[in-house]
Write a protein that binds this DNA or RNA. Structure first.
Lengths: 118, 118
DNA sequence: TCCACGTTTCAACTGCTCATGAATCATTGA
DNA sequence: TCAATGATTCATGAGCAGTTGAAACGTGGA
């Protein structure tokens, strides 16, 4: 993934509503969920939801599929994976401590990175 | 890592200059680089750099250390790792296809995720 | 054909992010 | 003490992101 694309994806993810949206769609796989249903679950107005959905779709993080009157949205696993991969490989250059934090699924509370105590 | 903290980190990363900054600091480890040197390397004005540095520091992605007249900035591996871990675990719930993309270090060009052809 | 429903688009407004240059602060050496 | 250096803060302005409600669009059923 190139930097502009990664930047677009990061910008898209850096929003409360859109992060909730990704978390809602993630376990549903390719089937996804209709826009109206998403709007009901997340409590977003239709125009607001449409705005956020198109932001995520433009960033390559979700896909849409028209079915009768409904539009179903589902996560684009490759887009999301590519974004995380960009952070891990291109940005962090597989920095060992960063990798360790990821594998632990750990939060920011480690002091092992500070051997210099003087 | 909690959602507000992850959102702050994602917002901080969703910027061209700040992404460059992280990539510059990443291989330097705990030693880091002085602000003036960073400004020279990246070609940023001092006030602009200071603005971006404080954004990254507030987001918990870098640390600062005063040394004589200089302020050295270095990556906070735990913060960066926690952010990636949040995306991978909390947001993607370790979605197998997302994980696969990450392990491959692959970009968004995979069609293996689409077995349904009819 | 007409209406209802699901969804998107539009215009207007608010607030935030970012860039710029000047001013300020802290530290060091003369 | 004073000047020079390194870094941050401030005020300003431009532009973008997000919210809202109304209008428009496409589709399917009566």
């Amino acid at each position: 993934m190139e930097k502009p694309q990664a930047l677009a994806a990061l910008s898209a993810l850096a929003n409360d509503a859109r992060l909730d949206l990704m978390r809602l769609l993630m376990p549903l796989g390719d089937q996804g969920l209709a826009a109206g249903e998403i709007s009901r679950v997340l409590g977003l107005s239709s125009s607001r939801l449409s705005f956020h959905l198109s932001a995520l779709e433009q960033a390559g993080l979700i896909r849409s599929r028209k079915l009768a009157r409904n539009v179903f949205y589902s996560v684009d696993a490759a887009g999301m994976g590519g974004t995380i991969s960009f952070l891990l490989n291109d940005c962090c250059m597989e920095h060992p401590e960063v990798l360790a934090c990821c594998r632990r699924g750990d939060s920011a509370k480690s002091t092992v990175t500070e051997p210099q105590g003087s």
